[in-house]
Design a protein around this nucleic acid. Sequence first.
RNA 1: GUGGGUGUAGCUCAGUCGGUAGAGCACCGGGUUGUGGCCUCGGCGGUCGAGGGUUCAAGUCCCUUCACUCACCCCA
Length: 418
Amino acid sequence: MITLVRGFKDILPAETALWQHLEDVARQLFDDFGFAELRIPVLEQTELFARSIGADTDIVEKEMYTFADRSGASLTMRPEATASVVRAYIEHKLYAKDPVWKLYTIGPMFRRERPQKGRYRQFYQINAEVFGLEDPRADAELILLLMTLMGRLELSGIMLHINSLGCAACRPHFKEALRSFLTESTAELCSDCLRRREKNPLRIFDCKVPACKEAMLDAPSILDHLCDQCRSHFETVQASLERFQIPYQTNHRLVRGLDYYTRTAFEVLAEALGAQDAVAGGGRYDSLVKALGGPDQPGIGFAIGVDRLIELLAHQRQGLEKRPHLFIAALGTGAQDRAFGWLQELRMQNVRTEMDFADRSLKAQMRRANKLGAPYVLIVGDRELEEGSAELRNMSTKEQEKVRLQDLVEVVVNKTRN
RNA sequence: GUGGGUGUAGCUCAGUCGGUAGAGCACCGGGUUGUGGCCUCGGCGGUCGAGGGUUCAAGUCCCUUCACUCACCCCA
């Protein structure tokens, strides 16, 4: 048997109704907030990700699906979407038409990590990106959009964490402060964190090794080291969230694994998810567009982990599946033939109609109608055909009425519309 | 990449001391010659993850391997 590639999965019909529901709600919401859809490819030149995500992040170092195509060019299955969206913004000179763009995109991402609950090698994200707005209300608007989506999906048990990572002016000072705080801790830190201390000391906040956590207990907070502009920016973001009664926690330990983030960073965490508890994450990336060769335009965005969100919504699955409006139980070849005709005719009227092509016993066909959950069953055999009628059975009341064949489509359409 | 757990019917799982492979659900059919759910009876369905070893005999013991899964790492 040929099986799935490790870490990949099929999404079976029992689940796709929920996926469609989620996407419908998201698209409607983006529409309400003035976001337009952008569709981007799954393959990009490897260099795009190396330059945007950061060459020595885990993603770029060891998690990308990278291969040489026949021309020898190095291509990569996208591990995230922001880089591609930024590339498209720059490549098509969208900024020239209007510097401000609010875009969203939905699709699969690929990372070659060890699979576990909530982590797949092909996983799905809903991404939102805003370009050209430096105002902190843009940060708030985006978080508001995200939390509104969670609300519309009737999701509970989630918590919004926010932080500010500072900017090119103040973050270097904080990194230095953190390094000097940790100079005495060489014995306590794990090997990863010793490396991080040199390269990117902020990441030590993410470490779950108990000794490292302890060493970081009294670590300085970046929120105490922000420059005036960053502090005022962050305060406005918080004030906006409060204005719209969005519950949140500031979390000065929230860093984020991608190099391009500046200022506002945020995550939505869900307790029910276990170890992979981030449902969504994002932040501001004011220097990314320029770094990738575009104009000096600020950006901010987030990604929602759709697989994880679906996990949280799994209990909503029942009630979403589509059931036929009508099942036609036809007895004998004559009735089967007529039924086949009505099947198509009714479907043209948007009546979900099913029948059994096997011409089995009425009992078997009734069983199937019941299993499919059809509220009405049309019973027709030679007896009915002769008198030009059929029996229409209401499955919940068990009442049956005779319907003249020439009125059949009209009657059924009316019944099933209510 | 590193650990732990689990692999038996389509699904959920039993399987004792090593002695002929089981249940429930699902599916198909009978009980009702043309009426669903409940009940009842029957049927279909197995490379016991794979390979090797020990043994008269292996689902069961040993070795190897693969897959799934959870966790570390990292992230959505």
